[in-house]
């Protein structure tokens, strides 16, 4: 579908396009993170590309890679009806340097998407007008979609009731065990795990 867009991007930016791939109509370009905003502006303003609509922006953590965090942007052109996926890789093992230029000046619609990526993955967007958490609460520590965020770590805003307070056992009452069909909880102390 948009292989033409991919070749146009390669022709314009050359070495800044690190990798491209194309499968089943999905065109992907991995680009130099330092030229992220420049490339986005070109995607929007070039008459043969005319990507006027950001669809999604998110972060994907690959702890075994360096840089480990991949920021993925999907854009769509409502006039030319083609799509492109743009990726940039940032951040070392400790997530130092996980920064990108904000694209809010390019597409104002990415403002909340960048906040979400910041909230979930901890990527900082330089020049973002209001870079706060958007899904989690301000008291939340860490970034839950990073692979090193412990899967069972919760951060309750109010303390849980204790069993002595409640006067009844709070660790799941029957039938919230295996017979409920919901036995794929992670807590190993629950009967659903010890029995299976």
């Amino acid at each position: 579908m948009s292989e033409a867009a991919l070749s146009r991007l390669k022709q314009q930016f050359g070495a800044a396009i690190l990798e491209t791939s194309s499968s089943f109509g999905d065109e992907t370009a991995v680009v130099d993170a330092t030229r992220w905003k420049e490339i986005a502006l070109f995607l929007r303003d070039d008459s043969k590309l005319a990507f006027d609509m950001p669809i999604d922006l998110c972060g994907v953590d690959y702890p075994e890679r360096s840089p480990r965090m991949e920021v993925v942007l999907h854009v769509y052109s409502t006039s030319l009806r083609h799509r492109l996926r743009l990726k940039a890789r940032v951040g070392d093992d400790e997530m130092n340097g996980a920064e990108l230029d904000s694209l809010v000046a390019v597409w104002s619609g990415v403002e909340w998407l960048e906040r979400e990526t910041y909230d979930m993955s901890g990527v900082t967007f330089r020049g973002h007008p209001d870079l706060r958490r958007i899904l989690m609460y301000p008291e939340f520590e860490g970034h839950p979609l990073r692979r090193d965020y412990a899967a069972n770590r919760t951060q309750p805003l109010i303390p849980y009731r204790t069993e002595s307070e409640a006067g009844v056992p709070l660790e799941k009452l029957a039938p919230f065990g295996p017979d409920e069909g919901m036995s794929f909880g992670r807590n190993p102390h629950l009967p659903s795990h010890s029995e299976n």
């Binding site: 009452l173 409920e180 919901m182 909880g185």
Partner: peptide, 26 residues
């Protein structure tokens, strides 16, 4: 009742962790 399959960072594992409950409907 118990958080269901949302066994993760974002969900309260059952409202009885917060307030008393009289009837659970699974």
């Amino acid at each position: 009742s118990c958080g269901g399959f949302y066994d993760n960072y974002t969900t309260v594992p059952g409202l009885d962790k917060i307030i008393p409950c009289d009837v659970y409907i699974p």
